[in-house]
Write a protein that binds this DNA or RNA. Structure first.
Length: 231
DNA sequence: GCCAACGTTGGC
DNA sequence: GCCAACGTTGGC
């Protein structure tokens, strides 16, 4: 059931983001490595950010979602950053990821890490805002729901294949960063060795959940092989 | 384990 | 709506 699609999210499950969270989890918002990165600044060169991809992986991610209505198996998959903002607690679960690489990245996400919210499959694709991880990976309930577009009959309750995280709205970008702009920077960086030269958005265009690398750190290809472990 | 057929992604 | 790129499936 290939559905390497990104996904919208539903209200953070009945088992909401905080239901069984270790209470005192008020970790300081750890800024991505000291790098100067003003995260979420509108300059695309800075949209890649954070740590290395070694063990603790990227501290910054990019997650795609479709802001426009589209019916998939009878269900509207639309989920824009405005939709996220409108959720209770501005929080939702990121369900429906059905691609192993994307899933592995979901599983690597840590509390408080941030992700750029990317609008795909729409008039003007691009980065719309910033979200943060408020619940680490747990089983995606939609894989067991027969009437759900993301139902996966091959997944067993005692060994769920697919995971999701909960994300919370942080803010919109100061200005919308279009795919066109990102691509221009990516192209330029390929020549100059700039930080976006290996941006997964272009090197792995179908990956709906992807890590971003810090300005001068290792190329994404390394992260990629690290994350490659299991299907 | 190869690989052709098929399905999906997502920009255009 | 088209279609190229690419992931998945399943026969062998």
């Amino acid at each position: 059931m290939p559905n390497p699609r990104k996904r919208r999210a539903g209200t953070a499950g009945a088992a909401g983001p905080d239901s069984k969270r270790p209470a005192g989890k008020h970790t300081k918002t750890r800024k991505p490595t000291g790098t100067s990165t003003r995260v979420g600044d509108s300059s695309p060169e800075k949209t890649s950010a954070s740590k290395n991809c070694g063990n603790n992986q990227s501290s910054y991610w990019l997650m795609k979602s479709e802001p426009q209505s589209r019916i998939e198996k009878g269900v509207d998959v639309k989920f824009s950053i405005e939709d996220l903002k409108a959720e209770p607690k501005q929080t939702a679960c990121w369900d429906g990821v059905r691609n192993y690489q994307a899933r592995n990245f979901l599983r690597a996400m840590k509390l408080e890490q941030k992700a750029f919210f990317y609008h795909s499959n729409c008039k003007e694709p691009g980065i719309a805002g910033l979200v943060k991880i408020v619940k680490e990976a747990y089983p995606d309930h939609t894989q067991f729901e027969k009437n759900n577009p993301y139902y996966d009959p091959s997944s067993k309750e005692d060994n769920p294949k697919w995971s999701m995280v909960d994300v919370q709205f942080v803010r919109l970008m100061k200005r919308y960063i279009t795919l066109t702009e990102l691509k221009a920077n990516h192209q330029a960086h390929k020549a100059t060795g700039g930080p976006l030269k290996n941006m997964a958005l272009f090197t792995h265009p179908r990956l709906s959940v992807q890590p971003l690398t810090p300005g001068k750190s290792r190329p994404y290809s390394l992260c990629y092989s690290h994350a490659r472990m299991t299907p």
